[in-house]
Amino acid sequence: MALTRQKGVIVKILLELLVVDDNPADIALVCEALAGSKLHSKINSVGDGVEAMTFLNRREKYVNALPPDLVILDLNLPKRDGLAVLAAMKAGPDLRRIPVVIFSTSQLRRDIVRSYEMGANCYVSKPGNLTEFFSAVKSIEEFWFGFVNLPPRGE
């Protein structure tokens, strides 16, 4: 749980994570890695780019969803790929401040550069072995939810 000062009063903020990945096995691994962590209160997940935008725009079944404080985004997604989601987020005034961590197996130079060009906050390669995978995911959460000053909430 993170603390922040709003209007002079210390407030507990419940931080939420959105994981966008078409591989449910990887989503499960992320949840395993963060199990027991007190830094977040909720992990939401979606399996493709279109559903990601539906969630972020709080439409259809996500009408009551809160905007996430961090998005962990895979690149190779069906329907709409990661870069398209990133572009859509950066185009929306209320979505563009949300930090996005690209989390992908791709180590292609062009994927990394394109991601940065389109405004991803950082790029982490999915490690091949379990220990490193867990360590990477935990570090991502620890950094963004434990250390970083996140952008102020819209409302």
């Binding site: 000062r5 563009r96 401040r97 930090p99 405004g119 906050n121 950082c122 950094f143 963004w144 250390f147 970083v148 000053n149 996140l150 952008p151 102020p152």
Partner: peptide
């Protein structure tokens, strides 16, 4: 700086992360 405004502007400009 603890200014909320600074954070907002920073992220708007595309800062990768903001720490106090």
């Amino acid at each position: 700086s603890k200014e909320e405004r600074d954070r907002a502007i920073g992220y708007d400009l595309g800062v990768n992360s903001y720490l106090q």
